[in-house]
Structure formats: C-alpha cells, structure tokens
Design a protein around this nucleic acid. Sequence first.
DNA 1: ATTTTCTTGTCATTTTCTTGTCATATGATG
DNA 2: CATCATATGACAAGAAAATGACAAGAAAAT
Lengths: 229, 229
Amino acid sequence: MAATILLVEDEPGIQELVKFNLTQAGHAVMCAESAEQALVITREALPDLVLLDWMLPGMSGIELARIFRTDVRMKQVPIIMLTARGDERDKVLGLETGADDYITKPFSPRELSARIKAVLRRRAPQMTEDRVEVRGLSLDPVSHRVIGNTVALELGPTEFRLLHFMMTHPERVYSRAQLLDHVWGDHVFVEERTVDVHIRRLRLALEVSGHENLIETVRGAGYRLSAQL
Amino acid sequence: MAATILLVEDEPGIQELVKFNLTQAGHAVMCAESAEQALVITREALPDLVLLDWMLPGMSGIELARIFRTDVRMKQVPIIMLTARGDERDKVLGLETGADDYITKPFSPRELSARIKAVLRRRAPQMTEDRVEVRGLSLDPVSHRVIGNTVALELGPTEFRLLHFMMTHPERVYSRAQLLDHVWGDHVFVEERTVDVHIRRLRLALEVSGHENLIETVRGAGYRLSAQL
DNA sequence: ATTTTCTTGTCATTTTCTTGTCATATGATG
DNA sequence: CATCATATGACAAGAAAATGACAAGAAAAT
C-alpha cells in the first residue's frame, strides 16, 4: 500500500508531523507550502493522492481542488481535505468540490492512515463496475462475463482478475511481482513463476476468440496487454 | 408493493402527514427527526427506500445522502429528496449526491406515491407487482404463480422470492451474502451455504419446464440468472 | 388442540473445479 | 554454443459447489 503522496500545507509544524507519519507508514511524500507550489510539483510528477489543507495563503485549498478536478492528469487523483474546524459547511463544501474525503484537525496518525487507505482502495481502478473493452474483447465485472467477438469465454477466478487488471491497465508492462501484488493481493507468498502459468492459462482461454496475442511477453520485464493491433 | 420506508424529516407536521399517506398506501414507515437518528435506525434495519428532507438541523440531508452512498449496506437503497423550494441548484446538487429523485414541497399524496413507485421500480424491481418474464419463464407476483412454457411450476416461498429477485436482476452476479441480504433480509443469521441448497431446490423445481440452466453458478463469485440463450 | 404436511436451515459427503509448484522443453541473447 | 528467461504439461493438494439426508419448526388441516 505504499503510495506517493503530495502534502499541501503551509504550517511548518503540521507539515513536519504529517510528513513524518506518512513516511513511517511507508509512503513517499512530496511537500508543497502553497497551492501554486503544488501546481508546479504536479506538473513534474503525478502523486497517487493529495492531502490538501483547506486554509492556504494565496490560492485556497478548495480552489486548488477545483483546478485539479478539471485537469486531465490530476482528475483521477484522490484528494483528502485537511480542515481545521469541524464546521459542517466546510465539510459539505469540500466534498462538493470533489474531495474524496476530509479529515478534521487535530487528527491521529491512525485515523489519517485509515482514511488514506480507504480512499486509495476506493479509487483503485480495478474495483469499478465499468465494463472494459479492448480489441473486441469485453469484460463485464457486473455479470462477470468475458466475451470475445460474440463468443463467451470461460476463465477461472484468477484468470478473470488477471485479465481485468490488465485490461484496466493496458499499454503498460507489469513485472511478475507487481502482478502478484495487484491481482493476488499484497502479502501473498506465491512463486513468481506462478504468474507465468496463469498467463498461459489466460492465453489459452483467450484463444477461443483469437485474442491470445493480446497479452505480450516483455522479456526481462514482465507482461503487457497491448490495445494496439 | 408494500415497502419499508425511512422518513427523515424534522418538521412534525409534515412528518405526520407523509407518514399517514405512506401508511395508507400500505407501506411500513420508520421515522427519524435528524440525520444522526437516521444513521442509528439504519444500523438496525435496512429500509427499502429513504425519504430525505433537504434541510435538517445538524447534519444536512445532502451529507447524509453522501454517507449512505458510501455505506456498504445502504449503498443500494434508493433515496428521494424532499426539498422546500424548486431551486435548480438544489435539484442538481441532490441528484449529484446520489439521490434517485427529488420532490418539491408542497406535494400531493398522489405525486409522492407515484415517485416512490417509479423509484422502487428502478432500484428494487422485486418490490413491485409487475410480472416478470425471462426465456419463456414467467413469474407473477400478484397471483404468486410461476409458469414455464405453459407448465405451472411448484416452488416454496423462499424459492419464489429467490427466483423473483433473480428474475428482476438478471445478468448480474450476486454473492451468497448479497442474496442473503436481498432475499432473506438484511441481518438474518443464516449460513451462506444455505443459499446453495435453495439454489438447488429452485433448479430442481425449474427442471419441470426445462429452465434449470437459467441460473448459472459463477465459481468464486456467486450465482447469476442468465437471460441469454 | 392435535395431527399432518410443508418448509427450512444445517451438516456430512461427494463431486467438480482451481491453483500453486515442479520438471522439462523451447526459445532468445550474447 | 552456453546461459538465461519463458512456455508448457502434468499433478497433487485444496477450495468451492452440488447433493442427499435430517430434524426442528411453521402452517394447514382435522
């Protein structure tokens, strides 16, 4: 569950404290002291999540959130608002702006950690109910069906999850270790070679509709689902 | 068409009025005077639908709706917002929050009733009295009859409810836990394996008209009623 | 009230399907 | 050619689902 987190907070004390906690929890932390600085940073590297203080000098947190929400690259990145008072109006406003969650100061490290975890999980693209479609192969999480060119395909639970993950993350190489993390779960003790076997089973199942070459082997790196013909 | 409805409304007058109308229409009504109270009530028993006043003391209606939408148990329960003015902004906000419909005060009993029916039909089709038909199998809630290809089928109460639910929610996988929630009721203490047994009984009953393969097992996920041939 | 008939939930058992691993084959790379 | 990475086939342990039987309880009939 290690993530890259952008912390936008002007008070040095709180910034340090939060940063320390996050680092302890195994996250990589980037810091900004103002909305403007945050914008510069996000231009360089996309964080997995943003912790955003409500009250900021210059551009306010809520305004920054609004900008993020309209930005193509940042749109998907979850935002947690840090608000000083438990004012209902703030909460509502924050959530309306598109924040995924808010947390009221003072907060405990445990609470912060829990919220981060929850938000990250909620945003995990794999868990959505949206149907995915690539090159005539369609996978529907709701009905739990895979159809390739009108032919229904049979695949086991693991192959289904594997395919789902790769279809929602196309054009990107994943190492065996990464696939184990994402498809099997974070702390499973399974041989890396096992991934090979499941890739093979998946390809075998996809053969029925001629989609077996959808998944490419990248020697020395891992596997990739290619959306291109 | 009898449903359990949770009414969240702080004004005693309106509360009484609505409650009276709903009861007349054959619904069971639970009342809360605040969002907080509503949360307590829903922790005990799940309603089939929520009527939610927009303006509430303490936590606002919109925030309550948001909480419901992120709650595993309440996520599926339809919400109708009660709003005082016909303000467009309210309407939009309400619908964005996940409300299924909204109704502007003052409203007539007939209008309320119609909206409830419409929402239930959309979100909880098994609550309505409509006859369902899939692949030559027809189930009529009113006469409580199931007919498959002109042959009358015999099934017990639980099997009937199970089939009704699945027929109104085809092409969707339901886990044993979900089926227990929807068919048996929210917190009943019943083994998950029991679902297997009832699925079997249902299949057995459907065999008479050759509909036994209507219900498919999705290994590792649950069961699905497939409308496709 | 009492008997009879159904319905239901549970369990033990059997059957079917999955899955992780290994040994070996195949193919790429330098 | 030697070496390393990946593909493949087989298999046994184990998980999940189907099945059959049963007893407690509810509903209906008497």
